[in-house]
Design a protein around this nucleic acid. Sequence first.
DNA 1: CGCTTGCCTGGAGTGCGCTCCAACTCTCTA
DNA 2: TAGAGAGTTGGAGCGCACTCCAGGCAAGCG
Lengths: 150, 150
Amino acid sequence: MTVLETMPTALSLCLTDVPHPRPAGQDHYTIGEVAEHTGLSAHTLRWYERIGLMPHVDRNHTGQRRFTNRDLDWLALVGKLRLTGMPVADMVRYAELVRQGDSTYRAREELLTAHREVVRQRIEELRSTLDVLDYKIDIYAGAHAAPEGV
Amino acid sequence: MTVLETMPTALSLCLTDVPHPRPAGQDHYTIGEVAEHTGLSAHTLRWYERIGLMPHVDRNHTGQRRFTNRDLDWLALVGKLRLTGMPVADMVRYAELVRQGDSTYRAREELLTAHREVVRQRIEELRSTLDVLDYKIDIYAGAHAAPEGV
DNA sequence: CGCTTGCCTGGAGTGCGCTCCAACTCTCTA
DNA sequence: TAGAGAGTTGGAGCGCACTCCAGGCAAGCG
């Protein structure tokens, strides 16, 4: 825990812009450390593993999970996909493709490309509704500015 | 139902750009008609009323709901807010303010302004994650284009 | 040695936003 | 007059994404 105390606690902003807390070779993190680093709860991390959203996680001699830098990278990607609103089921599907190896590159590309389109449309949807909010806000602002001068 | 057959079935795109199916004075719609017009289910319309998300809806002599153009306008706004991801509880709060009359203009403006900020941040969040998707997609596209020439 | 802390598990519970069910009424058409 | 079709209600159920609980184990500390 002390090692991580000065590290960012939120999900990393980009896949490459947050260095790993520990260098390769010493990258063995407890579930609590990973929870703090990613902002996910330990419950959620275990749940991700149960549903197949994590590649197999190592265990130490007493059966406790030991996460690696690779796991942190994966969780950073998952966090990104989650922010875009990708359903967990789709992320599990993607994780399965990754497990199946290099032969699934095309399928992975298609999955992500389809999702990118969803995200683009969602952005457009949000932008168009902003106009409605602006319109309504203007009305209210005018209404209580005019009659009372407040 | 026949009156509505040529009307748009999706949520209206803007608060003012879809004319009412029937002119003022003849604007009495059954729940089925409203469902078709808004794209919401009759179940959902009743549920909206139950939780206080609809202003009081008129009934005919046998107790069936008769929606008006005003109700359609309200549902168009609710649909917009819903598209922005506003929680139903917040929309109910907004509906309560509307019911309380003109004295709540300021509170309504604040509610919508706060939500507008949420929407703006969400757009930014989505846009930033698009970069990650582009990055990943490029990798996959390059990977299966290079080794096989597909 | 006991206590605390952190981890383990399977399974139950939660909050949101619907979605549907059972049992009923009313109106219209054949 | 019978049946179809659309409406009514309160309340139960569902899918998603967690979130928590009970009961237990292992390590470290005074």
